[in-house]
Nucleic acid binder design. Structure first.
Lengths: 204, 204, 204, 204
DNA sequence: AATGAATGAGTGTTCATTCAT
DNA sequence: CATGAATGAACACTCATTCAT
């Protein structure tokens, strides 16, 4: 690949990204179904036709966004799960660190998460299935935390249910936090969530 | 009003209900945006035109459904909150009774709740706002439980956040339960949820 | 035909007439195309279905109305043309008498005439043709006046054109009179119209 | 604005005009209400969707046409009224010149005028009101002729009525002329009309 | 690559007419 | 005769996608 080609490649990627960012903003405002391709291109300050030089359909943008989410949620998790492996960090602190990492991520990608959690269900079967898959995968990962916690306390709950509770709680609370425009102090939120989930899961 | 008119009135209400039930089933399957009025009338075994004798638009059915949900969630809550006022019932039992009541309701109205939680966000601003209002109202009610619980234990959490945690957890878990086709045993779900939330909220 | 049958016949005719009157009122207000059968039956205080016991279509009412107009215009003309045959009445007075008769008729049947002149053209080919036929027939009759007048003065105009001028003028002015809600005094209108048309047609 | 943009601008105006011309032809044939947007685009050899790149509704084409008419009638009048101001031209000749100008205009814009006079009444309240306004404005202008004529003869008529008579007569006769497919010789029509109206209005 | 006019299948809604009661 | 719910064909308008420039 020549230097010239590489440059073009980069510009192309940047342009594609611009479309994604524009799409996210509009989807968030109007919802996927009520967003016109023209709305996206207007925000990206280009023409409708040009959009189709980068994506083969309106749905494709969404798919790109969604794949990003799926990957992000899992990779972030793995990145943060490392704290649980470090025996010098008590598990509660590890949970806190994990939640702090997630809080940061939600803050940065708020539109993406809003679309994922609020809108994806309203699309069609295909997306609902995809969404549930992503949630299930995430719940599987979360189960690892539960198991780690159990090494420190007596289990009293079905770990599957616990994991589901964690997922529902964390995501539900973070989404509410986004919607409230991050009104509540991040540290307070993280502390409460940690205390709540850890205490709910463990017993003395 | 004559007897004949009364009868007609009843039939009309039943017919309207049939449309609502049919609409619910199709919305759940295809999503609101991908549902054609024809799909609804086909399921109701009648003609497209006739639909418009009962509703002035496709959106109106949704609005009727949504108003029903809002009312149902709150009225059910008030009906079940009575247990907290009876001093002979320990609060944990009261919570369990409440969850049992909700489990029953979610089971009966599963399509309605799926549409409410999964699809309403994907529609437009109007519906998102409405959904958030309903959730906020519900959270306000839930706060009453938290306050009741606090009479029995030491508060360690912001009750607003606690209420939000309860709402997110309960709804998230029940929706998952619906989607899993009620795989998990109801009693186990109720017990786990209760233990989790009560323990998470209270401290000895 | 038995007495009972005769009575029924009468009631039927009256009912039909009620529909026609109601239709006229609504057509005049909303225009034929924007009138719903329901509007007509509402005004007639009966049900949609019942309308079809008397007319086989919405168009049929219009046709009945139009036939009435055609007949009325010509029969009125013949009734009033009698003055021209009475040699004791000077032609100018005869014209005045004719216009007075027409003024009365337009006043009584204002809705009918408004529909005929203002709306019939906007319907389809069929009605435009019908309307033109009616106008042409009427113009043919009017030519008889021109000819009578010519016996009293020198002709300077093509009598076909004169007749057309008379028709256009008389109908145009009367329609304007109806629309202005008969603001102008009837006698003044008749006098002016007469002076105008007679003088325009005749020469000393 | 670049050269390219200017060219596009011109093409766009031409295209819009093509739609108007096509619409006129179809409206005239089928009537506004019986014209399908598809009929218009078929005549313009383009697609339904494209129509909506130029007009926001079927009604808008009509409105554009109507505004054109209103303007045309008045501007033509003002253009031709100049003859009345030139004292070397006798008023009868001025009237003739004016009618000649109108005859030409009616010939060129026959579809437009047919739609205006024959169909506009059958639409709804809005259009009837608009039509009457246009007619009233025109009648106001016509009154100026009457007043000019009065400088040459004795007034015997209410000038308001006279103006209305002129409007009704001229328009009625010209419309009939259009419908008869311009059978009658233009010069004869103009002469007759002039003689008729001038003589009807003036007195020795 | 960029533009925006052109395409046309698709959908909510209306309403004349029918029909069971 | 009367009622008004039921029918379904018809139509205005939308918008993702294509294509000529």
């Amino acid at each position: 690949m020549s230097l010239r080609q590489k440059k073009l490649e980069i510009t192309k990627k940047e342009k594609k990204n611009l479309f994604i960012i524009s799409a996210l903003a509009v989807f968030e405002e109007k919802g996927f179904n009520n967003t016109r391709v023209k709305d996206i291109t207007k925000k990206a300050k280009t023409s409708v036709g040009n959009f189709y030089n980068y994506f083969k359909s309106k749905e494709e943008v969404l798919e790109v966004i969604m794949s990003g989410i799926a990957e992000l949620m899992i990779s972030k998790f793995r990145e943060l799960f490392i704290y649980f492996k470090d025996n010098r960090i008590p598990p509660i602190s590890a949970v806190k660190k994990l939640f702090r990492g997630y809080a940061k991520m939600f803050k940065e990608k708020k539109e993406t998460f809003l679309i994922f959690f609020e809108q994806m269900g309203g699309m069609d079967q295909k997306y609902r299935t995809k969404r549930n898959e992503i949630m299930d995968n995430f719940t599987d990962e979360v189960e690892k935390i539960i198991i780690k916690l159990l090494e420190y306390g007596a289990r009293i709950q079905n770990p599957k249910i616990s994991a589901r509770v964690w997922t529902s709680t964390v995501l539900g609370v973070f989404i509410w936090w986004i919607r409230s425009n991050f009104e509540l102090d991040e540290e307070e939120l993280v502390n409460n969530l940690t205390a709540f989930l850890v205490r709910g899961t463990m017993t003395v």
